[in-house]
Amino acid sequence: MRLATFNILHGRSPADDAVDLDRYAAAVRVLDADVVALQEVDRDQPRSHGADLTAVAAEAMGAVDHRFAATLAGTPDVWTAATGELQPRTAAYGIALLSRHPVRAWRAIPLPRLDRAVPVSFPNQPHPVLVEDEPRVALAAVVETPEGVLTVVGTHLTFIPAWNARQLVRLVRAVADEPRPAVLMGDLNLLPPHPERLSRWRPLAAAPTFPTGDPVEQLDHVLADGPVHATSAAALDLGLSDHRALVVDVALG
């Protein structure tokens, strides 16, 4: 079966700075994945034509089960934290997990968040900048695949150094009792070998994913615990987002 993780930048392409829903759906079809983890996903946002980007992706890939978890509610000019209800009945932004195979159980896992602004250094910035992070969440699905049960966890960790490491450690502990084998995938905002060292899960793919055109960093990862291994892996430029999609073919057992 094929797994994929993709930070979609709400479907926007760096080529023309526009969101084209047909282009976005075509990109999801190119992935041809059985389970897809998406990050930076819009729902009912004007900047993405008011579309439910999770539903668009589900139709494009032929998903039979999918789930969206909001991290922010409202529109970009008036964001508020989507605390508590992870699918608020308003415009929202967050992550999604989609599957062509039936999902036996779903679980949303809020991750620890810094409650204050902190200084962060960015490339091409002469001095650190005070930033306040958005809430972060993970989605776990127990998927009934033709090869057996597979737990898939999708997430998007903070870019704040050290705090993303704390979130990853907390997430791994939170899914310790989920069925094995298991995979964890998403934009972890961590460079190798930190995801493997912090989680003690095995990396299934090694390929730079950021930035799209000439990637030099691997921020996106697929990690495994238990009897699952990769048969091939690739980072794909799909003509949208500032990240490449990471695709891994896996076998269970």
Rank of each mutant, 00 (worst) to 15 (best):
R2F: 08
F6A: 07
R12D: 09
P14T: 15
D16Q: 07
A18N: 10
L21S: 11
A26K: 15
A26N: 15
V28I: 15
R29M: 03
R29D: 04
L31C: 11
D34N: 07
V36N: 04
L38E: 09
D44K: 08
Q45V: 05
A55C: 03
V56N: 06
A60V: 07
A60Y: 03
M61I: 12
A63R: 08
F68P: 02
L72E: 08
T75M: 01
D77G: 00
W79F: 01
T83A: 14
G84I: 12
E85Y: 11
R89S: 11
R89Y: 00
A92T: 11
A92V: 04
A96R: 05
A96K: 00
L97N: 02
L97C: 06
R107V: 05
R113Q: 14
L114P: 08
D115S: 13
D115L: 11
D115M: 10
R116T: 15
V118F: 10
P119F: 07
P119D: 01
P123Q: 03
N124C: 03
Q125C: 02
P128W: 08
V129R: 15
E134G: 00
P135F: 11
V137T: 13
A138S: 02
A138Q: 06
A138Y: 05
E144V: 06
E144F: 06
P146K: 04
P146M: 01
E147T: 10
G148W: 02
L150Q: 08
L150D: 01
L150R: 04
G154H: 01
L157E: 10
T158A: 06
T158P: 03
F159S: 01
V169Y: 01
A174D: 14
R180Q: 12
A182Q: 12
A182R: 11
V183K: 05
N189F: 04
L190V: 03
P192Y: 06
P195K: 05
P195Y: 02
E196G: 03
E196W: 02
R197H: 12
W201K: 10
P203M: 12
P208E: 10
P208Q: 01
P211W: 07
G213T: 14
D214F: 12
D214N: 13
A224G: 08
H229K: 12
S232F: 03
A233D: 10
L236I: 09
G239Y: 10
H243P: 03
A245N: 04
A245R: 10
L246W: 07
V250Y: 06
A251R: 14
